[in-house]
Amino acid sequence: MLEGKLEQASLFKKVVEAVRELVQDCNFDCTENGLALQAMDTSHVSLVSLLLTADGFSEYRCDRNLALGINLVSLTKILRCGNNEDILTLEAGDSADSLVVRFENTQQDRMSEYALKLMDIDQEHLGIPETEYAASITMPSTEFQRICRDMQSISESITIDCTKGGVKFTCEGDIGSGSVTLKPNSSADKPELCTKIDLSEPVSLTLSTKYLLNFCKATGLSQQVTLKLADENPILVEYPLSAGHLRFYLAPKLDE
C-alpha cells in the first residue's frame, strides 16, 4: 500500500510537466525511501531519473515495493484537475489497478478525488555507471534555459566547452554562429545567481539543442541547475529538489 501526501500539488504537477514530453509511459517505483522514476525517451537518446524522497512528503507510507505503470498524458489530465496550492495525496493498494489522486484545498472545504487506471509496463532499466566527471558547472537554471532558447533558432547542436576560466556555449548553423561565455562568480547575498565551476580537466561536449531545451522544462523546479561533463560521455543535467532530484542524461554527438 502506498500513501503519499504532498503539502503542495505544484511540486508533483511541475515534475510531471517537466518529463511528459520525453516519456509517455513509465513505472513509478514506490519504496519505503520514496518515489522514483527512470525512463528513456522513445529515441533512446536521453534518460530521465526522478527521485522524490519520503521526507519530502508530509506523510508517506509504502509497506511493499510497488511499480505503478502510468501514462503521463493521462496523469497530466488528472493533475490539471487540482490547484497548485492544493494538498495532494497519492494512494494505491498493493494490487490496485488504479492510482487514487486526491486534492484538498488549503481552506479544507473542498475535496476532490480521481482514479487513474494503471498499466502493465515492461520497462527496460538502465544501469548508470559511476562516472568521473571532468567538470561540474552549477549555474542559474534560468540562464541555462535562456542559452538553450537563444541557440535553438541557430543550430541543432550546442557545444559546451569548460575550462577553469569559464564555460562557453557555442552553436553553429546555416545562418551563422553564436557563443555565450559564463565566468565563475559568487554573490553571498544571492547564491542562486552564482555560477560555480569544479574542474579536473578541460572538457568539450556537443549535444542536441532540442533535448537540452526539453530538459529546461524543469527550470521552475529549481533556481540552480548542475551540468556534469566527461569527454565522450553522456551529460548529466541535474535539478535539485527540496527532497530528491530530477536528473536528465543525454548522449553526446560525436564525430564519426
Partner: peptide, 14 residues
Amino acid sequence: TPIQNDLGEFFSMI
C-alpha cells in the same frame, strides 16, 4: 557533422 549517439552505447541494460 557529429552524429547523435544512442544512450544504450553508454549505459547497460539491467
